[in-house]
Amino acid sequence: MLGDIGTLVLQGAMISAIYALIAIGFTMIFGVGGILNLAHGALIMAGAYIFGILVRETTVSWIALHPAIAFPVTVVAVAVLSWGLYQVLVRWVEDNVVITFLATVVVAVASTELVIYLFGDTPMGMTLISGALNLEPFGINARPRYVQFAGFVVSWIAIGLLWFYITKTDDGRSILAASMSERGAQLTGVDLHSVRAKTWLIAGALAGIAGIFLGSTGSATPLMWLNPLALAFIIVVIGGIGSIKGSVVAAYFIGFLEQFTVTFVGQGFRGILSLVVLAIFLLYLPQGLYGREFVHD
C-alpha cells in the first residue's frame, strides 16, 4: 500500500510535468488569439517523429545525431513548423472562429495520414536517455526511467523560462497584455499580429519538447495527437482558459488523477475519470480554477 502510494506520487509527478508542457502552449494560443488550435496535438506528434528520425540510425543512417544535439534541433523545428502553420493558414482565416476551428482540425487529421504515408502504421521507438533507477530497496515498487526524471526537470526549466519571459521582459509582457485585452494592447502600441506569431512560435517549442518526451517514454504513433489534444482541452478548461498558472495546477491535478486510476482501478479506465471531471467543471465552473470572465471590449 505504501509502495503503491510512492509509485503514485513519483509517476504522477513525472507524467504531470509533461501534461503541463502540453497544455501551456494550447492555453497561450487560446488566450491571445481566441483560437482553439486543434492542430496542437499534431505539433506534438511532429516533435516525436522529427526527434525519432534524427536520433534513430535505421531511418536515415547519415543523420543519426546524438540526442543532446537532436533535442534542440527538434524543438526549433517544431517551433518553426507551428509559426509556419500560423503564417500560412491560420492568419488568413482567424477572423472567423468556426473556420479556424475546422481548418486546424483538418490539419490534425491530415497529419495522421501524412505520418502513415511517410512512416507507416507501426509505432516508432526512440531513446533520449536510456536506463532506469531501481527503487525497490527503498520500498517503492517502481522503476522510473531516467528519461522521466529528465522530462520533469526540463518541464520545470521551460515553465520557469516562460514565466520569466512573460512577466519580466517587455516582449513577453506584450503577450500578457494581448491576452488580457486586445484593444488595450493595441492602444499601447502592441503589434497584435507579431504577438500572435510569437505565441505560436513559443507554443510550438513547448509542443516540441512535450512530443520528444512522449515519444521517448512511449513511442510515436500516427494517432498520438488525439490523446494530448484531449488532455490539453481538459487541463485548459479546468485550469481556466488563457491562464498559465491554471494550466500547470490542472496538469498536476489531472496527471495524479490518471495515475490514481491506473494504479487503483485499471489501465482501461485511464482517461474516463478525467473526462467525467471535465464534464463537471464545464457544467458548474466553466471559467475554471484561475480563469476570468471574458471581458467584452
Binding site: 472562429v97 476551428f101 482541452f233 471535465l278 464534464a279 464545464l282
Partner: peptide, 10 residues
Amino acid sequence: GPYFSLITFV
C-alpha cells in the same frame, strides 16, 4: 462558443 464543441469532442 467553443465549450460546446469541446463537450461533443469529449
